[in-house]
């Protein structure tokens, strides 16, 4: 057994989890960057999905072990050994620029790396209707993720989804027809869902959202919000 961490849990254990589809694609490495960021952020907050993700990686390992090998070139081993022993200055910098906060963190590390700051440093763009957004910067493959902040007690205008929308709560909580969603909880909305999430009173609700097609707002403020998610 590993040593049990002495620190208190940072947050509650999430009740709404990632789908097997997402975890499989994440392990396989076939997810786009925005969705990978979403998965990595949830894994930070969810011990249960970390175990499921470890199992998926293990599947990859078993399949790798089983694959029909293809011969390496002659001399490959000595080439690798001489490169391996050379001074390691050609390592790609792995997502440098993460500013670690010392006393806990609101955003999971994968998100802090993109934003370059924690939640208190985010520049929000107000959209009206008690809604603000902050696009995740620096995503290079054309996929999109953004944070959505809904003022305490307010509802996001009613909308349907032309594609899939993945939402995870980072702070506060909201409720919709599917139940209550708090920190780390994931909701997947597809084209059939016409929902109106409402932030709980007392605290603004901040979510990470990934869409693979623009949201289509159907309520009275829809025209405004359709502008900001036009991406």
């Amino acid at each position: 057994m590993s040593v049990v961490s002495a620190r208190e849990p940072v947050g509650p254990i999430p009740q709404h989890h990632l789908s097997d589809d997402l975890l499989t694609a994440y392990a396989a490495g076939s997810l786009d960057e925005a969705s990978s960021l979403f998965v990595a952020s949830h894994l930070t907050l969810c011990p249960e999905c970390r175990r499921r993700a470890a199992m998926m990686d293990e599947v990859g390992g078993v399949l790798l072990d089983d694959i029909a090998p293809v011969a390496m070139s002659a001399g490959a081993l000595s080439a690798v050994l001489s490169r391996a022993e050379a001074p390691a200055n050609d390592e790609p910098a792995s997502m440098a620029g993460s500013r670690q906060t010392v006393f806990g963190a609101d955003l999971p590390a994968p998100m802090r790396r993109y934003y370059g700051c924690d939640l208190d440093g985010i520049a929000w763009q107000r959209q009206g209707g008690g809604v603000s957004v902050a696009t995740v910067p620096g995503i290079g493959d054309g996929s999109h993720a953004f944070m959505l902040k809904v003022e305490a007690g307010r509802a996001v205008p009613q909308h349907t989804h032309r594609g899939n929308e993945l939402v995870m709560v980072l702070k506060g909580a909201y409720s919709d027809a599917a139940g209550r969603f708090g920190r780390g909880d994931v909701e997947l909305a597809d084209g059939d869902v016409d929902h109106q999430p409402k932030a709980e009173k007392g605290e603004d609700c901040i979510c990470l959202a990934v869409t693979d097609a623009p949201l289509k707002f159907t309520g009275s403020l829809g025209w405004l919000l359709n502008v900001f998610v036009k991406m």
Binding site: I13, L37, T44, P47, G104, P108, P110, Y114
Partner: peptide
């Protein structure tokens, strides 16, 4: 190998969790 492939062909660093993240909710 998977991460090498993602770096090389998708030209992105695969977002991954950080075991030392203060935001990490630890295992029970």
């Amino acid at each position: 190998a998977r991460n090498k492939r993602i770096d090389a062909y998708r030209r992105m660093n695969r977002p991954d969790l950080d075991e030392n993240d203060p935001a990490l909710v630890p295992d029970g």
